[in-house]
Design a protein around this nucleic acid. Structure first.
Lengths: 235, 235
DNA sequence: TGGTAGATCAATCGTGTATCAATTTTACGG
DNA sequence: CCGTAAAATTGATACACGATTGATCTACCA
């Protein structure tokens, strides 16, 4: 029969928005009790309408993650301890958790090299090399390739959360991603203070999709297994 | 296409379609809450008609695996427990997918060794050592420690899916799990045909919880990164 | 009976706009 | 310094519109 399993369709936008915000809560980017920006401003920042945004907020309120006060604002309400009801994936310190940040090593628009898997539609891509931290301890280096068709990126535009940058500066957001975790060795451009190129380490490949059939981003992450591990929580 | 006349016994096409999709759920290709493509597109992708496809969807809805929302879409609905039977098995062949199976190497009730992290309440645990396969190619070895307080296991009781065994033979269901992926080396009891002890490999630690605050199971998995990788899909 | 094809209906989504209600902030008078 | 009222801010609610999508029905074929 048809060996054609289909690619998943995009979820309703308000669901994606809710999950985007919930991710920010889980990663610590949104703290307990913090007040969100006004709905109107937030809607324009996220390139959506107030109605859609409010549906997302309604979802979060229903999950007990948000307290909505008329005339005052929307307040984060952190529920229960770690590993709430949301399945998370990320790099964590061996001791658990950690507030993520990143330092850009290099950013350049380049021709896609031949050793990259096929993704996107353009022949060029923006290459970003970063060093990643959890609580100010370096845990990984990564190389991100963003298809040129998605827009131009400059160093000044980057924030700690790349996906947030994509949304605010380029007007699209990542709706789907796939990680493949394996083992590898540190690349030759690894900063000397991080480690020696060739050292065995954890290795993550990630494809990211937006609202089109072809992946728009491909990234490789090399993480130090003595300091961090890839964590997946399942409910 | 090519509806070749077959023997009196071929399953109706819509049943085959339903089973195809259910298998995608079980293997984790379709995740909880995910939205399927529009029926029209899905029908053409699967080389069938909308009517036939809808019969298949109707079957899945009747089984509680699908939530159909008019005007919105078809959403995967996880049935009791953590998704499908293999939803928690996240290793895939490098070429993608693969049907999982396992061969028991050893099963023994033992005192918990000191190098194990604390879990459960008993001082003893059942140790299971298995070799794991995807499509009959060996991809990993694993060691599972089930707290003695959960019941007695015998070799004859084991099926390919341990969690299903727990449910059917011991009467509890794993509701939550946490994976930590890193790198390691093959243990000294690795079967010779699988690899040489000490060889670098991928390494997964997993804690599993049932209906009590303390973890009831701890497992370690060593996988061959040249044949499989740990996969995580995100929406 | 099972599968295909097409037309039509109904519900939802995303967006935009307007209006109301509750709260906070500010300004003013004492 | 205090109290009150007005102004500004912000969330809540409602409706309209077009596009998308599932639901239903009929006709036809093997």
């Amino acid at each position: 029969m048809a060996p054609a399993p289909e690619n998943p369709g995009p979820l309703p936008k308000y669901v994606q928005l809710a999950e985007l915000l919930i991710r920010d809560i889980d990663t610590g980017r949104l703290m307990d009790g913090e007040r969100l920006p006004p709905e109107r401003q937030m809607a324009t920042d996220l390139h959506t309408s107030v109605g859609t945004l409010r549906k997302a907020l309604r979802v979060m309120e229903h999950k007990g993650l948000l307290r909505r006060v008329q005339g005052s604002g929307n307040y984060i309400q952190r529920k229960g301890g770690p590993g709430g009801t949301y399945a998370m994936f990320r790099l964590e310190l061996l001791s658990g958790g950690g507030l993520p940040s990143a330092k850009v090593i290099d950013l350049a628009p380049l021709e896609k090299p031949d050793d990259l898997p096929v993704f996107g539609t353009a022949s060029r891509a923006t290459r970003i090399r970063r060093e990643r931290f959890l609580n100010d301890t370096a845990i990984a280096v990564e190389e991100i390739w963003l298809d040129a068709g998605m827009g131009e990126l400059s160093r000044a535009m980057l924030s700690d959360s790349l996906y947030q940058t994509y949304l605010q500066r380029l007007g699209f957001w990542v709706t789907r991603a796939e990680d493949r975790v394996s083992i590898g060795t540190l690349p030759d451009w690894t900063p000397v203070h991080f480690g020696t190129p060739g050292t065995p380490c954890g290795y993550i490949e990630r494809y990211s999709w937006a609202d089109r059939p072809q992946a728009i981003e491909f990234s490789r992450t090399w993480f130090d297994p003595t300091r961090a591990s890839y964590v997946q929580r399942l409910r």
